[in-house]
């Protein structure tokens, strides 16, 4: 069934929260995402968008169902294996950039490569190239406190791309930005997606932006309604 070009496949993926009452945050989700696709996830607040992202990002474990990444079942992996996969094939951009405040932009972008055990020189070269790509060539030695919200979010994007991940996940990456810088960030993501042919999955509340995606997934009450 799974052909070469499928990177992510969800089979009846379900996440149930159980504090007193049972709550189905994600309900029997079935989905297939192809290599190089730009996917927008939309839906009202509380519909399970973040839950889905955390499951695909291997930060959370499903209650039932299977999740295949690159054809491998990742639901039964150890912390070590999951950490390794997050490092090598996943890149994250969240609503809050969570950059390390005591490190420069350059060092922050180098961090995933250092975690991967790459040398400082190698990491520095890659990080410099990516920061140029996101238009921050003049700001590499600034710390997060010395950069604007939009600039920090661009550093976070460069960081997400530093290990050349197959999949880049963005959970409302522009949620904290004004419309203008938000649009710029989306433009940047779209452009990087075309350039590197990486798979992008981005949660957004902005229908206008979503309409430019290759595929739109709409979630309502934990169920995928449009595929």
């Amino acid at each position: 069934m799974t052909d070469e070009s499928t990177v992510i496949e969800l089979k009846n993926l379900t996440k149930v929260y159980q504090n007193g009452v049972e709550f189905r945050a994600l309900d029997n989700a079935n989905l297939r995402i192809e290599k190089g696709e730009f996917v927008a996830i939309v839906g009202p607040s509380g519909s399970g968008k973040s839950t889905l992202m955390h499951l695909i990002g291997l930060l959370d474990t499903p209650s039932s169902g299977t999740l295949l990444i690159d054809g491998k079942d990742v639901t039964k992996m150890s912390d070590k294996e999951r950490s390794g996969m997050r490092n090598r094939i996943l890149g994250f951009v969240f609503q809050y950039h969570h950059l390390l405040p005591d490190f420069t932009a350059l060092e922050n972008v180098m961090m995933p490569l250092l975690i991967a055990g790459k040398s400082r020189e190698k990491a520095k070269n890659v990080a410099e190239e990516l920061l140029e790509k996101v238009g921050l060539e003049g700001r590499m030695d600034h710390r997060p406190g010395e950069l604007s919200g939009g600039q920090n979010q661009r550093v976070a994007i460069a960081r997400a791309l530093s290990c050349s991940p197959a999949i880049v996940l963005g959970d409302e990456p522009t949620g904290n930005l004004d419309t203008k810088s938000g649009d710029m960030i989306y433009e940047l993501l779209r452009q990087l997606n075309r350039e590197y042919n990486q798979t992008f999955i981005v949660v957004t509340h902005n229908d206008d932006l979503a309409s430019k995606a290759d595929k739109i997934i709409r979630l309502v009450d934990g169920k995928i309604t449009v595929r």
Binding site: G57, L59, D79, K80, S83, G84, M85, R86, N87, R88, L90, F92, F94, Y96, H98, L99, L100, P101, M111, P112, I115, A116, R159, C163
Partner: peptide
């Protein structure tokens, strides 16, 4: 938040 982000970047619990 930064600890969570480090985990997302692939840092193991032991790290």
């Amino acid at each position: 938040g930064q600890i969570g982000m480090l985990r997302a970047m692939g840092a193991q619990v032991s790290g």
